[in-house]
Design a protein around this nucleic acid. Structure first.
Length: 574
RNA sequence: CGGGGCGUGGCGCAGUCUGGUAGCGCACCAGUCUGGGGGACUGGUGGUCGUCGGUUCAAAUCCGGCCGCCCCGACCA
């Protein structure tokens, strides 16, 4: 591809809205352009990388026997009503009517379509197990897109679905996908770690997310460097301290003006924050007020809370009015004297004696509050976030917290969708059974962005060989005073194309500085320079983008590389 | 949805407070020079100032509505 003809434009200045390196570089190097919030065009370079990422995923899916197909982006709403998700999913699903007035939706994922196909196609246990997958556009009207390709609203995802007779089959499929994911991320040059995760709106029994560590990541991971324990903080359960036993002292009201926060309260009373009980308030999608009590030295884990109270439609922070309507005073709140609220108490807070809690009266707290003496929880369970330095649940070591970006996930769905849609098969025993499903996603664009996050320097992108849009970037210099430069450049470019290994050819009449700068920005693994100087030195100058290592290579050698492939990374600059 | 910020040529910005002929750098076009690290000079092209309405002799500038984008939070497979 001649750069002079390429549909792209590099930018000299950083676009102001791009903060993450991947966003900035993909924009500057002409790989992507934004059309709207969370909506991007892939320019030819970006498209080529995407196709290479896709091909890696395809090969590994095929390797485990998953069959490629394609399912639609537009679905009849009735299908989603059958599974119950039409109502369960919020405004992130785009809904519209077609010309005949039928309710339609844009696909966020394809469990329903697969289950619908299953009831048509699968009749007998003899057909199982099977796995299918496709690469298809999803649209999720995220409340907030961010980070360039990291979090978008429209994106292409590889989603695979396993179709099994029973849980044992599902288990085998699940771990086959797990293995494929490990190979995929390794090939993509991503250091992804599998962490235990919440099943969320997908439902199901077991789930892992594959995470790449990144300070801008939106998930918090709980990791143990000693034993390798890894979990999303949403689900991480770590050992809790054991509070020292104390006699329960009588409750007493105390004046605590201006202490609406735990920190202020503890400072005012001269006690540690672990001696306080913190009340936080949430409202569920179906309108219940939840009062969550944790010790002052812990934070509420909303995922655990949602799961504990089985909140349909999730939870949101309660409004002041909602809290007061239940007889509580924000800033000085506690379940004592409250009504019409579900009280969930963290088990550590419940075990901790003589805590200071709110008195439900502005400027007052209660000393020596004890559970269940002073109020009756509806539920006592772990609803807190793991903290940096907490003990590791597996080895007793110390956990650390790190931010991560989810580059893939795997879910054991079970029979949630097949039951809802009535997709079953006739077993060997002559009985009808539910088909057992799993679902497995990888977002292409997000992976692409994560590759750039992991493979760039101050000059630009440095693609791993496996996904680079072109293996080599051919730069000609001094064409005006040495006709052989153009002759050789043209010949090499044509030779590579004939061999089916097209390269990027900077044939523009630009100064050397511009050409080198662009070559480093665009990030092809090999930069090949043809100039009077290189010809005098014996051929072409070849630079490895990642290391900056340079060497002179005879034109004949270069020709063989262009025909047969460049040497692997281990061969260095050769 | 809450908080903050921003919309002026492809990118980055000034001009808005204090109304009076739309500017700068980069990019782009032509020419000359230069030719291994975003080179120099000369001359050019390109903008209904997000949008709709109002005030005014006159609006990028003042007032109001709407739209869009970014960041933080909420949210999220």
């Amino acid at each position: 591809m001649r750069l002079s003809q390429l549909f792209f434009s590099s930018l000299r200045d950083d676009p102001v809205e791009a903060e993450m390196p991947s966003h900035r570089l993909l924009l500057r190097a002409g790989y992507i352009r934004q059309l709207g919030s969370g909506i991007y065009s892939l320019l030819p370079l970006g498209f080529r990388v995407t196709k290479r990422v896709e091909q890696v995923v395809r090969e590994e899916m095929n390797r485990i026997g998953s069959q490629e197909m394609e399912m639609p982006v537009v679905h009849p709403a009735d299908l989603w009503r059958e599974s119950g998700r039409y109502d369960a999913v919020g405004p992130e699903m785009v809904r519209f009517k077609d010309r005949a007035g039928r309710d339609m939706v844009l696909a966020m994922t394809h469990e329903e379509v697969v289950a619908d196909l299953l009831r048509d196609i699968v009749k007998s246990y003899r057909q199982l197990p099977m796995m299918v997958y496709h690469f298809q556009t999803k649209f999720r009207d995220e409340p907030r897109a961010r980070g360039g390709l990291i979090r978008v609203r429209e994106f292409v995802m590889k989603d695979a679905y396993s179709i099994d007779r029973d849980d044992a089959g599902l288990d085998a499929s699940y771990w086959a996908q797990h293995g494929a994911y490990v190979r995929i991320f390794e090939r993509l040059g991503l250091e992804a770690i599998a962490v235990a995760s919440d099943v969320g709106m997908m439902g199901g029994s077991l789930a892992h997310e594959f995470m790449v560590l990144n300070p801008a990541g939106e998930d918090v991971l709980v990791l143990c460097e000693q034993c390798g324990y890894a979990a999303n903080r949403q689900v991480a359960v770590v050992p809790r301290p054991s509070p020292a036993a104390e006699d329960e002292l009588p409750t007493e009201a105390i004046l605590t003006p201006g202490t609406a926060t735990i920190a202020d309260l503890a400072a005012f009373l001269g006690i540690g924050i672990e001696r306080t009980a913190k009340a936080t308030f949430f409202t569920t999608g179906d309108g219940r007020l939840i009062t969550a009590i944790v010790r002052g030295d812990f934070e509420v884990n909303e995922t655990k809370l949602v799961n504990a109270v089985q909140a349909t439609g999730g939870i949101r922070p309660a409004t002041l009015d909602e809290i007061k309507a239940a007889g509580m005073e924000p800033g000085y709140g506690s379940p004592i004297g409250a009504h019409d609220t579900t009280v969930v108490v963290d088990d550590l807070a419940a075990r901790s004696p003589n805590l200071v809690a709110g008195a439900n009266r502005e400027g007052y707290h209660l000393r020596n509050v004890n559970v269940p003496r002073d109020y009756t929880p509806d539920l006592i369970t772990d609803i807190t976030n793991a903290r940096e330095g907490d003990p590791c649940p597996d080895c007793g070591g110390t956990v650390i917290l790190r931010n991560g970006i989810e580059v893939g996930n795997i879910f054991k769905l079970g029979t949630k969708y097949t039951d809802a849609l009535g997709a079953g098969y006739l077993g060997e025993d002559g009985e009808r059974h539910s088909i057992v499903m799993g679902s497995y996603g990888i977002g292409l664009g997000r992976n692409l962005a994560c590759i750039v996050e992991a493979h760039h320097d101050e000059k630009g992108i440095a693609w791993p060989d496996e996904v680079a849009p072109y293996a080599a970037h051919l730069v000609t210099i001094g064409a005006a005073r040495e006709p052989r430069v153009v002759e050789i450049g043209d010949r090499l470019h044509a030779l590579a194309a004939d061999a089916g290994r097209e390269i990027l050819y900077d044939d523009r009449d630009e100064s050397p500085g511009v050409k080198f700068t662009d070559a480093e920005l665009l990030g092809m693994p090999w930069i090949v320079t043809i100039s009077p100087r290189s010809l005098a030195a014996g051929g072409a100058e070849v630079t490895r983008r990642t290391t900056g290592e340079r060497s002179t290579v005879a034109i004949e050698t270069l020709e063989s590389w262009l025909r047969d492939g460049f040497p692997g990374p281990e061969a260095g600059a050769a």
